[in-house]
């Protein structure tokens, strides 16, 4: 498998992979910019679709199309592209809340900070030496920036559901990172990871649902009364 990855990748495929990665970046920024929760979730779903295609690309680059890649893609598509967004959208529908109002960091501000993070990620990965040859030089910077933007969403939004999306974006970043060592992780574990993510989101959705019940909407600003006494 290692040998497979070190095999030179054809140019056309290379361009395609790079394009997909750039698309992921743009989707990140779009998620930062949107105020509508549903849009945000759909964008996320699309990002997952793009990401799940990548293992196939990586697999085709090698001599044989690995069963590994197919399983991974299948799992990702089913879980991330369909199931998770479905759950989240359902929560939104029952929750009767559509927009992120007044985030900690404004939407324009978020995009600017997100762009800065992308820049930082590229700067950082220029200093990283990846052992072995990745499928694309863009992979690591995109992974890191996705991760950072996920964190940014997590931190700067009030709505619980947006935080879930943020967490999922973060997870996507890690997934991208993991693509660079497709071979080292047995399939079982990869699927286990995916499943865990799914269950995690499932539980989160339940909790979000409870938050809605408790407060009639999903604003985490209502949480966190004063904790530590003076």
């Amino acid at each position: 498998m290692l040998a497979a990855l070190t095999h030179p990748i054809p140019d056309s495929l290379h361009t395609a992979i790079d394009g997909a990665l750039v698309l992921v970046l743009l989707l990140n920024l779009a998620m930062l910019a949107t105020s509508r929760l549903a849009t945000c979730i759909r964008l996320f779903s699309f990002q997952c679709l793009v990401i799940s295609v990548l293992p196939i690309a990586a697999a085709t680059a090698s001599d044989a199309i690995g069963i590994h890649g197919f399983f991974l893609m299948g799992g990702t598509v089913v879980l991330k592209v369909f199931l998770i967004p479905f759950i989240l959208l359902r929560v939104i529908r029952t929750g009767d809340i559509q927009r992120e109002v007044q985030p900690y960091l404004g939407f324009t501000g978020s995009v600017v900070v997100g762009a800065m993070m992308i820049g930082g990620a590229f700067a950082l990965s220029s200093r990283l030496v990846l052992p072995g040859q990745a499928m694309s030089t863009l992979l690591i910077p995109v992974a890191i920036s996705t991760l950072l933007i996920g964190l940014l969403i997590l931190v700067s939004r009030y709505k619980a559901i947006t935080q879930v999306v943020g967490y999922l974006v973060l997870e996507n970043g890690i997934y991208l990172f993991g693509l660079s060592l497709l071979h080292a992780m047995p399939l079982l574990v990869e699927l286990g990871i995916l499943l865990d993510v799914f269950v995690g989101v499932f539980v989160m959705a339940i909790v979000v649902y409870h938050i809605r019940q408790e407060f009639d909407h999903m604003d985490t600003q209502n949480l966190a009364p004063m904790k530590e006494p003076a």
Binding site: L2, L130, P131, G132, L147, L151, L154, A160, Q163, Y167, L170, E171, I174, F177, G178, S180, L181, H183, A184, M185, I193, G200, V203, M204, V207, I211, T220, L223
Partner: peptide, 27 residues
Amino acid sequence: WKFLLMNSVGIALGLLGIFCLGLSTTA
């Protein structure tokens, strides 16, 4: 919620770390 979110983030970082460990083997 706090437990869930923080642990999830933490554990995601842990996963990243494990990936890095994996990367170290491909030197």
